[in-house]
């Protein structure tokens, strides 16, 4: 087991290292001077532009040898310094991002967990039940094929513009002050619901399909037939099948994390929800390269941590990992 975690952690550390290197490399080795590109788009007066050029050349550290720049980059990073935002000058990028992250997490974590749980339950229930199966299959495939933002757009249009049940945009209404009062929390929840629902629905379809397929596969396995031959009740057989099918679904969850985060980002953009996705859109529109680079590192870090959590859960639920990893494998 120790070996298993060491291996996994090794991969994550290596990934983080590669990601940071890419983050450092891309602005420096892409064609053109990053400082020039940035300032050309800011369209400033000449004297201001010159001052900014001097400042940003210093920030990028372009006046020292390349290996030194790389070390400086790591040094700053380890102190939590990701540079200064251009769009929200002179706020530090780390602070700007940390303010947005709670919104994204509040959206993403419940959506992932609930859709995974509900999708698995429902998929298992639908498998091998003719009528249900025939509807679940096409609906599920259409749901997983739906681009996140489009489902968000449709929900916003139907339930906010047309029906007027939910607010169409924002994290909370403009006329309330952020505070821990019930009325503000209720307002927050109303704004939270639609983006959450669109993330949930797309995920739900995928998990339901995956589970349905796995259950059918498990019910064809020898142990299922053996149990049936012994006269075990159908429910018992299905329960064993479900437990076995959960493992690949867990691996699938780890694989889907990147896609899910991407989904959350675009959903936030649809609803102008003040999370990381909305921040990234603003950063792109304002050519705020530091902010984009910072957001990139945050996303990678988040996905790596989530991957590690899935690994831990996997070891907890699969006894074979514990046995296998202690032995030869």
């Amino acid at each position: 087991m120790r070996h298993y975690f060491q291996r996994k952690l090794g991969i994550y550390v290596l990934t983080f290292f590669v990601a940071v290197t890419v983050d450092w490399m891309i602005p420096r080795f892409m064609p053109g001077d990053p400082v020039q590109t940035m300032l050309a788009r800011a369209s400033l007066r000449p004297e201001a532009s010159q001052a900014m050029q001097a400042y940003y050349t210093g920030v990028f550290g372009l006046d020292v040898p390349i290996w030194r720049q790389y070390l400086n980059f790591w040094g700053a990073l380890l102190q939590g310094d990701l540079g200064v935002s251009i769009w929200l000058f002179p706020q530090p990028v780390t602070g700007v991002i940390l303010r947005a992250v709670p919104y994204t997490i509040a959206l993403l974590v419940p959506a992932i967990l609930l859709s995974w749980w509900a999708g698995n339950k429902f998929g298992a229930f639908a498998a091998r039940r003719r009528w249900l199966d025939n509807t679940v299959l096409p609906v599920g495939y259409v749901l997983t094929a739906t681009p996140y933002m489009w489902l968000g757009i449709l929900l916003a249009w139907a339930l906010a513009t047309v029906a007027g049940v939910f607010p169409i945009a924002g994290g909370y209404s403009f006329d309330v002050e952020p505070s821990w009062t019930p009325s503000f929390l209720a307002d927050l929840a109303r704004h939270w619901f639609l983006p959450f629902a669109s993330l949930f629905l797309v995920g739900f379809g995928g998990w339901a399909i995956g589970m349905r397929n796995l259950i059918i596969y498990e019910l064809e396995a020898d142990y299922s037939h053996y149990l049936e031959a012994l006269g075990a009740p159908r429910r018992l057989v299905r329960r064993y099948a479900f437990r076995n099918a959960l493992l690949p679904q867990l691996t699938g969850l780890a694989l889907q994390l990147g896609v899910l985060v991407a989904g959350a980002l675009v959903t936030e953009i649809v609803f102008s929800y003040p999370g990381l996705g909305y921040l990234i859109l603003q950063a792109i529109n304002n050519q705020d390269f530091f902010l984009i680079q910072g957001a990139f590192l945050f996303i990678i870090l988040g996905v790596l941590v989530a991957n590690f959590l899935v690994d831990v859960v996997y070891v907890l639920v699969d006894p074979r990992t514990r046995v296998g990893m202690r032995g030869a494998a």
Binding site: I11, Y12, T15, V18, A19, V22, D23, I26, L257, G258, V259, V261, A262, L265, I280, I292, Q293, A295, F296, I299, I300, V303, L304, N307
Partner: peptide, 10 residues
Amino acid sequence: VVPTLAVLLI
């Protein structure tokens, strides 16, 4: 493990 979109973004 690297999210595709993040890399493409940058």
